[in-house]
């Protein structure tokens, strides 16, 4: 429990430190307020706001990632019991990983790892 207290203290310190940096900057900077500017577009005014429905062409890879990422939930507890459970733990885990890896190969063949 005290470990989480220390982590909370660290988070508080980080946020406090950032706020302090902003306060200090207000005193040291040439002007305290921020300059409002148009975004940098090589010297031109933007035609439209940049925040938009951006096409992330690598999204098939994100699905592949999710499959493995969920698997990681099993991986961490598994890591602590490999020694006590023994061979069956290894076989079961690596059969699952093998299936997932086959999925990666299939996705690669389908072009999920290429997007340009």
């Amino acid at each position: 429990m005290s470990a989480y207290l220390s982590l909370a203290a660290m988070l508080g310190l980080a946020v406090g430190g950032v706020l302090l940096a902003y306060l200090l900057h207000r005193r040291t900077a040439v002007a305290p307020g921020a300059l409002t500017s148009l975004p940098f577009l090589s010297g031109w005014r933007p035609d439209e706001h940049a925040l938009s429905r951006f096409e992330a062409r690598y999204y098939p890879m994100t699905l592949l990632f999710l499959a493995f990422d969920v698997e990681m939930l099993y991986m961490y507890p598994w890591a602590t019991v490999v020694a006590s459970i023994g061979t069956s733990a290894i076989v079961e885990m690596f059969v699952l990983l093998g299936v997932l890896m086959t999925g990666v190969l299939w996705a690669w063949r389908e072009g999920a790892l290429r997007w340009t």
């Binding site: 660290m10 988070l11 946020v15 900077a29 040439v30 300059l35 409002t36 148009l38």
Partner: peptide, 28 residues
């Protein structure tokens, strides 16, 4: 620290602040 801060027109300020402070926070 001598340089002025800068915001852009219609910036998503809360999210930008979280992102800016996030790297150092995560490292700590």
């Amino acid at each position: 620290f001598g340089q002025r801060r800068r915001t852009t027109v219609a910036a998503d300020l809360p999210l930008q602040r979280i992102g800016t402070a996030g790297l150092l926070t995560a490292a700590l």
